[in-house]
Amino acid sequence: MKKQLNLKVENLKKITEQHILLSLVAPNGDMPEIKAGQFVEVKVDNAPTVFLRRPISVHFVDYAKQRLDLLVALVGDGTRKMATLSVGDEVSVLLPLGNGFPMPTKAGAKCLLVGGGVGIAPLLYLGDRLKAAGHQVSFLLGARNAGGVMLEDEFKKFGSLYLTTEDGSVGEKGFVTNHSILEKEQFDEIFVCGPTPMMKAVAKYAYAKNIECYVSLENKMACGLGACLCCVTEDNKGHNRCVCSEGPVFNINELPWQN
């Protein structure tokens, strides 16, 4: 059930120069059930330049503590304004929105979770959910350089962690698709979130190996509810589909990425 809730800022931590981890709690204990891969729409403030809500993917949920964690890249006026929130501030949030990553049907599936940049955000909660469901989790995360590598200890709680950086300062040098793990291991399912070129490159690998693969898209959106039709992506049948309400997670076989 979707809700509009006023959540309270419990903590705001600077993770890198460009990323914050924002922890919000539901003071009335009414945090709805959220699936990995779903997102929320955050009302930042009433400044004219931050008119719309900001769609942010769910990084982690701790129901016992009624806490929702958002990993936010500071890319524009809205997100930079979020970085100025103080502990105790109230923030209006619409949640949960969109569809999550589907859980593998095979028992004990070998899952590869691939993320780049702030696209790693939804993979932590996904790793948690997959591990809890008895699947084997490996994370393959890419960054430009050591300064962009974050939260390694958190990811290690739920699976093996493989890293790449473009300059080779941490992990293997290159893009995620250059990592040796892709040749060494055979995975049952791949889940990807990150820049579109990266997702397309991983999709190419999955198509070639005939591996079930899901990607989480990030388009500019307004309502987050499937009403405004602003965030569409074209599917492989030439139809425009809403990323917010029909995604943000799509099976790569639904997308025109094969060529």
Binding site: K220, A222, C230, C231, V232
Partner: peptide
């Protein structure tokens, strides 16, 4: 099918 993406831009207010 409507127009291609991007279809939306935030502007002041």
């Amino acid at each position: 099918e409507g127009n291609p993406y991007p279809r939306m831009a935030e502007t002041p207010s």
